[in-house]
């Protein structure tokens, strides 16, 4: 059992929680995820790790209410427990494999969509610790759905905001803001890391491809166990089948078959509707 020691409302229907999980907190690295289970009859739900504190033994997650399972998570309060809080899973971000000098030479841009801001945060924070501050684009529907802005501002080199309705920052899509930065504002990037809804990652990858900028995406596929056992998370990358949970979650965005990934993500949608739940679908999708 894993105790929730802090719960905070970040935006409408979006909650941050600190959870006591000393083993996970000690082992977590940027880019990894975990699997939570609310109670005995609940799903195994993959969530990205937003932050971790090895000394306190806590791990931070951010959840948005999109269906029955996420509603159950968000209904938990400080002092309540998760039945499971398993991880960290998947490979750490490939940036963590680069040495300091290499990191200093690279111009890195993160593109976060919606709840994708949460998993982007630990990566930007880790880079800041290596004195390799990165630029960050955060996209959201409107200004009320922006999260972790102050935290991100404190660690990013530049923080750019795009909203669909223009209620904050640039009015338009993150891909349009990206083009604006590169074409009009003279920004140069060597690596783009995009984390957000599958459809956003697809279009970011398409856009950066025309600029020949290496692009890493972190996939939010269906999963059951998260340890390589089930294969529900299969994705085609460069013509080969990969398991997101053990081979990823990060892949080369220019090689991912996003149309297949989008289709596979919806496999249980009808059944879930029948059961009035959004089980198994990672919650950082819109």
């Amino acid at each position: 059992m894993f105790k929730i020691v802090k719960k905070q409302l970040l935006a409408k229907d979006i909650y941050l929680m600190d959870v006591e999980a000393p083993r996970v907190a000690r082992a977590a690295q940027p880019g990894q995820f975990l699997i939570v289970r609310i109670d005995e009859k609940g799903e195994r739900i993959p969530l990205t790790i937003c932050d971790y504190n090895a000394e306190k033994g806590t791990v931070t997650i951010v959840t948005q209410i999109v269906g029955a399972s996420s509603r159950k998570i968000c209904a938990l309060n400080e002092g309540d427990y998760f039945a499971s809080f398993t991880g960290p899973l998947g490979h750490p971000s490939e940036l963590t494999l680069l040495c300091k000098e290499d990191l200093h030479k690279k111009h890195i841009l993160f593109i976060a969509g919606g709840l994708g801001t949460a998993p982007v945060y630990p990566q930007v924070k880790w880079l800041a610790k290596q004195d390799a501050k990165a630029d960050v684009i955060v996209g959201a529907k409107n200004k009320d759905l922006l999260i972790l802005q102050d935290e991100m501002k404190a660690i990013a080199k530049n923080l750019y905001v795009a909203t669909d309705d223009g209620s904050a920052g640039f009015k338009g899509l993150v891909t349009e803001l990206f083009k604006d930065l590169v074409d009009k504002q003279g920004q140069k990037y060597d690596i783009v890391v995009a984390i957000g809804p599958m459809i956003m990652m697809k279009f970011v990858a398409l856009t950066t491809k025309s600029y020949s900028i290496r692009t890493i995406v972190s996939l939010n596929t269906l999963m059951v166990d998260g340890t390589g056992m089930c294969g529900a998370c299969r994705v085609t990358v460069g013509g080969k089948t990969k398991f997101t949970c053990v081979d990823g979650p990060e892949f080369d965005g220019h090689l991912v078959d996003f149309d297949e990934a989008l289709r596979r993500q919806g496999m249980y949608k009808n059944i879930e509707k029948e059961k009035d739940c959004q089980c198994l679908v990672r919650l950082d999708k819109t």
Partner: peptide
């Protein structure tokens, strides 16, 4: 093999 509806026995049984 990656069409929706193709699953491993592991996934189905789990």
């Amino acid at each position: 093999e990656n069409f929706n509806g193709v699953v491993s026995a592991n996934e189905f049984l789990t």
